[in-house]
Design a binder for these strands. Structure first.
Lengths: 164, 164
DNA sequence: GCCAATGCGTCAACATTGCTGCCATAATCG
DNA sequence: CGATTATGGCAGCAATGTTGACGCATTGGC
């Protein structure tokens, strides 16, 4: 009455399934960032500059503190990156009206052009993946990614262009 | 006969949808790597060391060239990281039997222990997100992530522990 | 109106992680 | 035997993150 073949081990499958998820995340992120990285390198910029340009483009008029909260880096690290972008004319600062201490950030036309150039490939890549996977898959993709985000960051992340 | 309210713009929605995908990817990856990064910092190591430990643990006996192909960095960059891990006793090298030029990599018991410690939180995070999202969502997650990977890398990525 | 807290910037020093370029060794292949 | 492959080492440079300390303007509470 013994089955000679070992029964599929659910624990092993689970481990395998999780590791596949981890690896897919790594591979996808690796290839997702490769294209803009090339463009940035030509300009003497790095991935951090892209992140700043992206989120400032997404939230025009955002203060520095909001950017820090998104990127989760120190203000010294951001300051170096931001300073370079401002000196290079990609980003503009305006003093806050409600609070004059704030520096409200926005892209210059030159910055907006670079943002489009950098994000274009990524948008296309996501669009292709979405189209190929179908609407239900996209929904699942979003659900799982949201679940991967720290619980206390989820609301902020989903707010996106924080109009709300 | 004019509807005073603007019709929902499908192009805008699409753009918004794609940007949300881009951002979810950023946020998820940010939080996904934060935990192991802390542990690594205590040991004087960085994220690159985790990647090496992870993939060597996953593919015991792999040659350096296979690691390079996964990580997509130069051998000089890898050499520094790998050298440190070997000197610190996390990774062991054995000469290849088929090709004596190859250095086949594997984790030492100490390396395997670190791998478990580093990946444990990530596995738990993925497990929680999977459980919360449901099996169909997990399927969609995998489909979309796979679609984000460069076409000529997909097969290799899905091979995982490359037993095949 | 004083005074602490906030928002932001800066200087300095350091480590990690990429890159390019060059050279060396050993083994394998044709 | 000569070319290619697999790997390693060294030098130098840039980007990106860290901690720590300090400065300056503004804001808000008492």
């Amino acid at each position: 009455m013994n089955d000679p073949r070992p029964v599929a081990n659910p624990l092993f499958l689970r481990e395998e399934e999780l590791r596949q998820g981890i690896e897919l995340l790594f591979y996808a992120y690796r290839d997702f960032t490769a294209e803009p990285d090339k463009i940035l390198a030509e300009l003497g910029l790095g991935r951090a500059h892209h992140r700043v340009i992206y989120f400032v483009g997404r939230n025009p008029g955002m203060p520095v503190s909001a950017l820090l909260d998104i990127l989760k880096i120190t203000k010294q690290s951001l300051s170096r990156v931001l300073g370079k972008l401002i000196r290079a004319g990609f980003i503009q600062q305006k003093a806050g009206t409600r609070d004059a201490r704030q520096r409200l950030l926005e892209l210059t036309p030159k910055g907006a052009a670079l943002e489009r150039r950098l994000t274009e490939g990524q948008r296309r890549r996501v669009a292709t993946a979405y189209r190929g996977a179908g609407a239900d898959a996209v929904d699942g993709f979003r659900k799982v990614l949201t679940g991967l985000i720290d619980e206390n960051e989820r609301l902020k992340a989903l707010a996106g262009g924080s109009r709300g």
